[in-house]
Design a protein around this nucleic acid. Structure first.
Length: 460
RNA sequence: GUCCCCAUUGACUAGGGGUUAGGUCACCACCCUUUCAAGGUGGCGGCGGGGGUUCAAAUCCCCCUGGGGACGCCA
């Protein structure tokens, strides 16, 4: 059985890159019927926070990436790491080092100045010290592995140096805990960002020293911003949850993220979750870094919005809207769904609804001067509007078909184009030049409000 | 400085010795139409450069260039 994991450190929110890594692991586990484990790497007490842990859990949950096991917290597994550290000491595969930070800096500076690798040179190997940091006794030779997505990697061990396993305060470091846990938890594949490539030989050496069988490693390329530098705040939101707040649907986010580095042979773009799981394959992961493209995410979100059930969108909108909308509880609840039906083919993100359809949510509307000049103050328009009001207020049914019929009949009677009625009517009812079909808008607004808005304009 | 990774249109990518280099977003045009979207049709645009190997190179090899990563008692 394949066992994979997502192992974030809780030092911030779940960012886009981390989410993609989690997604690929999750997809692989689901595709193979394996197990997806969540492990929180919080060995650095100074930087880890409870808030960050929660944020990561929330992010994964929002995306629908459920884990089969965990979350494990490395901070709760200290005795395990201690045990293995002792084992390495006993077997003479690790030793204590008492070099000071200054000394280390100096040594590094020197090494670099003479063109040598910057790793620790192992000068404390034979001092027999009983305290300080515990360092791994990096063996001679090379460490080789075959990456799942790339070719062969070969590292010269001497360039890596004797790295730290346990800090002087007794807490273990990343490379050590990661290797121990990946071994103990039975990981078959480790899929992670390619910023971890330099760590892999270290972990491989730990596996070997401890007598564990290593998993297969695959390193995912980074996700870049539009200027091709690594994705950061400069490029907009990097936190996954920020996308939720901006009105993106988790399905769209997942679909988009999946395409950042993975593809099918026919370049299919839209996948249901099931389809994605079924078609996912490590063999089809690309090794070049991808630029995160907001435009495409927006397009995709628009597609998902269009396909979504109005009631689901309504409940998402209600969660998002906070205090930005006016209007009565009644309009919100009763009409929201109907409004959504009118707009779901037109918006890319949920909050757009509130700017485009604001005239549904407030009783008073404001018609910008520009629209008055351009549309309402033209010759004959006032008369047309009066006629329109008379026709509409007399209707007994107020559904789109009836309204359309009435308007078209009126246009014929007045000897003008239907558009000559529709455009002023739209301006009066919505305060905008663009809206969904005007007959639907009328019907949903209701006869009373339509007549009221017409009157308000005519009287001016 | 040392080690390492990457390179197909503006973006995501397919293709991996012989293709009119395919799809998607974006962009442009047209159709539809009460506007805007949506939808439909069509279009613009690409193998970073130089050397090899080969009858044949986007594809294999080398160099260059460009971009990125790592060199922590961070993960």
């Amino acid at each position: 059985m394949t066992i994979v994991r997502f192992a974030p450190s809780p030092t911030g929110y779940l960012h886009v890159g981390g989410a993609r890594t989690a997604l690929f692991n999750w997809l692989y586990a689901r595709n193979t019927g394996g197990k997806f484990i969540l492990r929180i790497e919080d060995t650095d007490a100074k930087r880890s926070t409870q808030t960050a842990t929660q944020a990561i859990l929330d992010g994964l949950t929002w995306l629908g990436l459920d884990w089969d096991d965990g979350p494990y917290f490395q901070s709760e597994r200290m005795s395990i790491y201690q045990k293995y550290a002792q084992k390495l000491i006993d077997e003479n595969k690790a030793y204590y080092c008492t070099c000071s930070v200054d000394e280390l800096d100096e040594q590094k500076k020197q090494a670099v100045s003479i063109g040598r690798a910057a790793g620790y040179d192992g000068r404390c190997r034979d001092t027999g010290a009983k305290q300080g940091v515990l360092r791994f006794k990096t063996p001679d030779g090379n460490t080789v592995f075959y990456d799942l997505f790339r070719d062969k990697f070969e590292f010269e061990n001497s360039l890596i140096g004797d790295f730290v396993l346990v800090r002087s305060d007794g807490t273990p470091t990343y490379n050590f805990t990661c290797a121990v846990d990946d071994a103990l938890m039975g990981m078959t594949h480790v899929i992670r960002g390619d910023d971890h490539i330099p760590n892999t030989p270290k972990q491989l050496m730990i596996f070997a020293a401890l007598g564990f069988n290593p998993p297969k490693f695959g390193h995912l390329p980074l996700i870049l911003g539009t200027d091709k530098s690594p994705l950061s705040k400069r490029h907009g939101a990097v936190s996954v949850m920020a996308y939720q707040e901006q009105g993106f649907l988790p399905e769209a986010m997942v679909n988009y993220l999946a395409l950042l580095g993975w593809s099918t042979s026919d370049s299919q773009q839209l996948f249901s979750r099931e389809e994605m799981i079924e078609k996912f394959s490590l063999k089809r992961i690309t090794k070049n870094p991808a630029v995160f493209d907001m435009e495409k995410l927006q397009w995709m979100n628009g597609v998902y919005i269009k396909q979504a059930k109005p009631e689901e969108l309504a409940s998402l909108c209600k969660k998002l809207q906070k205090e930005e909308t006016e209007g009565t509880e009644e309009t919100k609840n009763i009409q929201l769904e109907e409004i959504i039906k009118l707009y779901q083919g037109r918006i890319k993100v949920l909050p757009e609804l509130y700017s485009l359809a604001d005239f549904f949510f407030s009783s008073e509307i404001h018609i910008p001067e520009e629209i008055c000049q351009e549309i309402l103050f033209k010759d004959g328009v006032q008369e047309t509007l009066t006629e329109t009001k008379n026709v509409l207020s007399a209707l007994e049914m107020f559904d789109p078909v009836t309204i359309e019929e009435a308007i078209r009949t009126l246009a014929e009677r007045l000897g003008i184009k239907a558009g000559d009625i529709i455009h002023p009517l739209r301006a009066v009812l919505t305060g905008k030049k663009v809206s969904p079909g005007i007959f639907e808008v009328c019907a949903l607004l209701g006869q009373e409000r339509v007549v009221q808005r017409l009157n308000a304009t005519i009287e001016r």
